[in-house]
Write a protein that binds this DNA or RNA. Structure first.
Length: 203
DNA sequence: AAAACGGGGGC
DNA sequence: GCCCCAGTTTT
Protein backbone atom coordinates (compact mmCIF):
# COMPACT_ATOMS: atom_id res chain seq x y z
CA UNK A 1 0.00 0.00 0.00
CA UNK A 2 1.38 3.36 -1.07
CA UNK A 3 1.20 5.57 1.97
CA UNK A 4 2.34 8.69 0.17
CA UNK A 5 -0.41 8.28 -2.41
CA UNK A 6 -3.06 7.99 0.27
CA UNK A 7 -1.90 11.09 2.15
CA UNK A 8 -1.46 12.98 -1.10
CA UNK A 9 -5.07 12.26 -2.08
CA UNK A 10 -6.34 13.25 1.35
CA UNK A 11 -4.44 16.53 1.13
CA UNK A 12 -6.12 17.28 -2.20
CA UNK A 13 -9.50 16.33 -0.77
CA UNK A 14 -9.01 18.52 2.30
CA UNK A 15 -6.64 21.30 1.14
CA UNK A 16 -7.28 23.43 4.21
CA UNK A 17 -6.60 20.54 6.57
CA UNK A 18 -8.26 20.48 9.94
CA UNK A 19 -9.51 23.85 11.14
CA UNK A 20 -8.63 25.00 14.63
CA UNK A 21 -10.14 28.13 16.09
CA UNK A 22 -7.16 28.67 18.37
CA UNK A 23 -3.73 27.04 18.43
CA UNK A 24 -2.64 28.45 21.75
CA UNK A 25 -1.18 25.46 23.68
CA UNK A 26 -3.31 25.91 26.77
CA UNK A 27 -6.50 26.44 24.77
CA UNK A 28 -5.71 23.45 22.60
CA UNK A 29 -4.88 21.25 25.57
CA UNK A 30 -8.15 22.04 27.33
CA UNK A 31 -10.27 21.78 24.18
CA UNK A 32 -8.67 18.45 23.30
CA UNK A 33 -9.41 16.99 26.73
CA UNK A 34 -13.00 18.19 26.37
CA UNK A 35 -13.19 16.58 22.92
CA UNK A 36 -12.43 13.07 24.20
CA UNK A 37 -15.26 10.74 23.12
CA UNK A 38 -17.24 13.84 22.14
CA UNK A 39 -18.21 15.33 18.77
CA UNK A 40 -16.26 18.49 18.04
CA UNK A 41 -19.41 20.31 16.90
CA UNK A 42 -20.26 20.22 20.59
CA UNK A 43 -16.75 20.76 21.94
CA UNK A 44 -15.90 23.92 20.00
CA UNK A 45 -18.68 26.20 21.31
CA UNK A 46 -18.35 24.72 24.80
CA UNK A 47 -14.62 25.50 24.92
CA UNK A 48 -15.26 29.06 23.80
CA UNK A 49 -17.91 29.47 26.47
CA UNK A 50 -15.53 28.07 29.11
CA UNK A 51 -12.67 30.35 28.03
CA UNK A 52 -14.89 33.41 28.12
CA UNK A 53 -14.80 32.89 31.89
CA UNK A 54 -11.58 30.95 32.60
CA UNK A 55 -8.91 31.64 29.96
CA UNK A 56 -5.71 30.98 31.91
CA UNK A 57 -4.31 28.21 34.15
CA UNK A 58 -4.36 30.72 37.00
CA UNK A 59 -8.11 31.31 36.68
CA UNK A 60 -8.96 27.67 35.99
CA UNK A 61 -6.89 26.37 38.91
CA UNK A 62 -8.82 28.39 41.45
CA UNK A 63 -12.22 27.94 39.83
CA UNK A 64 -15.21 26.35 41.52
CA UNK A 65 -15.55 22.79 40.18
CA UNK A 66 -19.35 23.11 40.13
CA UNK A 67 -19.14 26.18 37.91
CA UNK A 68 -16.85 24.36 35.46
CA UNK A 69 -19.14 21.35 35.55
CA UNK A 70 -22.14 23.41 34.48
CA UNK A 71 -20.18 25.28 31.80
CA UNK A 72 -19.06 22.05 30.10
CA UNK A 73 -22.15 19.89 30.71
CA UNK A 74 -22.95 19.35 27.01
CA UNK A 75 -19.66 17.56 26.23
CA UNK A 76 -20.50 14.65 28.51
CA UNK A 77 -18.19 13.06 31.10
CA UNK A 78 -18.51 16.51 32.64
CA UNK A 79 -17.85 15.45 36.21
CA UNK A 80 -14.46 13.86 35.67
CA UNK A 81 -13.51 16.36 32.98
CA UNK A 82 -14.25 19.35 35.22
CA UNK A 83 -12.02 17.94 37.95
CA UNK A 84 -9.28 17.15 35.46
CA UNK A 85 -9.29 20.65 33.95
CA UNK A 86 -8.71 22.12 37.39
CA UNK A 87 -6.08 19.53 38.29
CA UNK A 88 -4.27 20.01 34.96
CA UNK A 89 -4.16 23.74 35.57
CA UNK A 90 -2.83 23.27 39.10
CA UNK A 91 -0.06 20.93 37.90
CA UNK A 92 0.85 23.38 35.12
CA UNK A 93 1.22 26.13 37.72
CA UNK A 94 3.04 23.98 40.28
CA UNK A 95 5.36 22.02 38.02
CA UNK A 96 5.64 23.91 34.73
CA UNK A 97 5.51 27.59 35.64
CA UNK A 98 2.05 27.82 34.06
CA UNK A 99 3.41 26.86 30.63
CA UNK A 100 2.18 23.83 28.66
CA UNK A 101 5.20 21.56 28.05
CA UNK A 102 6.07 20.64 24.46
CA UNK A 103 7.25 17.14 25.37
CA UNK A 104 5.26 13.91 25.10
CA UNK A 105 6.62 12.42 28.33
CA UNK A 106 5.67 15.51 30.30
CA UNK A 107 2.25 15.93 28.68
CA UNK A 108 1.09 12.40 29.44
CA UNK A 109 1.80 12.97 33.11
CA UNK A 110 -1.09 15.44 33.22
CA UNK A 111 -4.36 13.94 34.48
CA UNK A 112 -6.70 13.00 31.66
CA UNK A 113 -3.97 13.33 29.03
CA UNK A 114 -3.06 10.15 27.14
CA UNK A 115 -0.96 9.73 24.02
CA UNK A 116 -3.71 10.81 21.61
CA UNK A 117 -4.38 14.07 23.44
CA UNK A 118 -0.68 14.77 24.02
CA UNK A 119 0.18 14.18 20.37
CA UNK A 120 -2.64 16.46 19.26
CA UNK A 121 -1.17 19.26 21.37
CA UNK A 122 2.31 18.57 19.99
CA UNK A 123 1.21 18.63 16.35
CA UNK A 124 -1.47 21.33 16.38
CA UNK A 125 -0.06 23.74 18.98
CA UNK A 126 3.69 23.17 18.61
CA UNK A 127 3.88 21.92 15.01
CA UNK A 128 5.99 18.96 16.16
CA UNK A 129 6.45 15.68 14.31
CA UNK A 130 4.09 13.20 15.98
CA UNK A 131 1.15 10.96 15.10
CA UNK A 132 -2.02 11.36 17.15
CA UNK A 133 -3.86 8.06 16.82
CA UNK A 134 -7.54 8.17 17.62
CA UNK A 135 -10.25 5.72 16.59
CA UNK A 136 -10.40 7.20 13.06
CA UNK A 137 -6.65 6.91 12.44
CA UNK A 138 -6.62 3.43 13.95
CA UNK A 139 -9.57 2.20 11.89
CA UNK A 140 -8.57 3.73 8.56
CA UNK A 141 -4.91 2.69 8.83
CA UNK A 142 -6.00 -0.90 9.30
CA UNK A 143 -8.79 -0.79 6.71
CA UNK A 144 -6.43 0.52 4.07
CA UNK A 145 -3.75 -1.98 4.91
CA UNK A 146 -1.16 0.48 6.19
CA UNK A 147 -0.81 -1.50 9.39
CA UNK A 148 -2.23 -4.57 11.07
CA UNK A 149 -2.73 -3.69 14.70
CA UNK A 150 -5.06 -4.22 17.64
CA UNK A 151 -4.51 -1.04 19.64
CA UNK A 152 -3.95 2.68 18.93
CA UNK A 153 -0.59 2.50 20.72
CA UNK A 154 0.50 -0.24 18.33
CA UNK A 155 -0.81 1.75 15.38
CA UNK A 156 1.26 4.77 16.38
CA UNK A 157 4.43 2.68 16.45
CA UNK A 158 3.72 0.93 13.15
CA UNK A 159 2.69 4.11 11.31
CA UNK A 160 5.95 5.74 12.33
CA UNK A 161 7.74 2.97 10.47
CA UNK A 162 5.87 3.29 7.18
CA UNK A 163 5.18 7.03 6.94
CA UNK A 164 7.73 9.76 6.21
CA UNK A 165 8.32 11.87 9.29
CA UNK A 166 7.35 15.08 7.52
CA UNK A 167 3.83 13.71 7.02
CA UNK A 168 3.24 12.60 10.61
CA UNK A 169 1.60 15.81 11.76
CA UNK A 170 -0.87 15.74 8.85
CA UNK A 171 -2.21 12.24 9.44
CA UNK A 172 -4.56 12.92 12.33
CA UNK A 173 -6.49 15.85 10.88
CA UNK A 174 -6.79 14.34 7.42
CA UNK A 175 -7.95 10.93 8.61
CA UNK A 176 -10.44 12.44 11.06
CA UNK A 177 -12.06 14.44 8.25
CA UNK A 178 -11.99 11.40 5.98
CA UNK A 179 -13.28 9.10 8.73
CA UNK A 180 -16.23 11.31 9.62
CA UNK A 181 -17.41 11.91 6.06
CA UNK A 182 -16.44 8.91 3.91
CA UNK A 183 -14.55 6.13 5.65
CA UNK A 184 -17.01 5.95 8.51
CA UNK A 185 -16.95 3.23 11.19
CA UNK A 186 -20.15 1.65 9.87
CA UNK A 187 -21.57 1.85 6.37
CA UNK A 188 -18.63 3.70 4.79
CA UNK A 189 -19.36 5.48 1.52
CA UNK A 190 -17.16 3.29 -0.63
CA UNK A 191 -19.22 4.13 -3.72
CA UNK A 192 -18.06 7.75 -3.70
CA UNK A 193 -14.62 7.19 -2.17
CA UNK A 194 -11.50 8.53 -3.90
CA UNK A 195 -9.48 5.58 -2.53
CA UNK A 196 -11.65 3.06 -4.35
CA UNK A 197 -8.92 1.86 -6.71
CA UNK A 198 -6.27 1.29 -4.03
CA UNK A 199 -8.31 0.27 -0.99
CA UNK A 200 -8.24 -3.42 0.01
CA UNK A 201 -11.84 -2.97 1.20
CA UNK A 202 -11.46 -5.27 4.15
CA UNK A 203 -14.76 -4.11 5.55
C1' DA B 1 -9.42 -7.35 30.10
C1' DA B 2 -13.42 -4.84 31.33
C1' DA B 3 -15.94 -1.17 33.44
C1' DA B 4 -16.94 3.56 34.15
C1' DC B 5 -17.57 8.21 32.83
C1' DG B 6 -22.48 11.04 29.81
C1' DG B 7 -25.21 14.59 27.38
C1' DG B 8 -26.65 15.25 22.73
C1' DG B 9 -27.57 14.09 18.07
C1' DG B 10 -28.69 10.62 14.34
C1' DC B 11 -31.71 7.23 12.95
C1' DG C 1 -35.84 4.25 22.29
C1' DC C 2 -31.28 2.69 21.07
C1' DC C 3 -26.58 3.51 19.68
C1' DC C 4 -22.49 6.10 18.96
C1' DC C 5 -19.11 9.83 19.71
C1' DA C 6 -11.11 13.56 18.36
C1' DG C 7 -10.10 8.49 25.23
C1' DT C 8 -8.34 7.83 29.71
C1' DT C 9 -8.35 6.03 34.21
C1' DT C 10 -9.67 2.70 37.51
C1' DT C 11 -11.03 -1.91 38.91
Amino acid sequence: MDVEEIISRLKKLYPKGYFHINRDPYYLLISTVLSQRTRDEVTIPTTQKLFSVFDTPQKMASADVDEIRELIREVGFYNVKAQRLIEISRVLLDEYDGIVPDDIDELVKLPGVGRKTANCVLTYAFDKDAIAVDTHVHRISNRMGLVETDTPEETEIELEKVVDKEMWKDINGLMVLFGKSICRPVSPKCDVCIMNDICPKLI
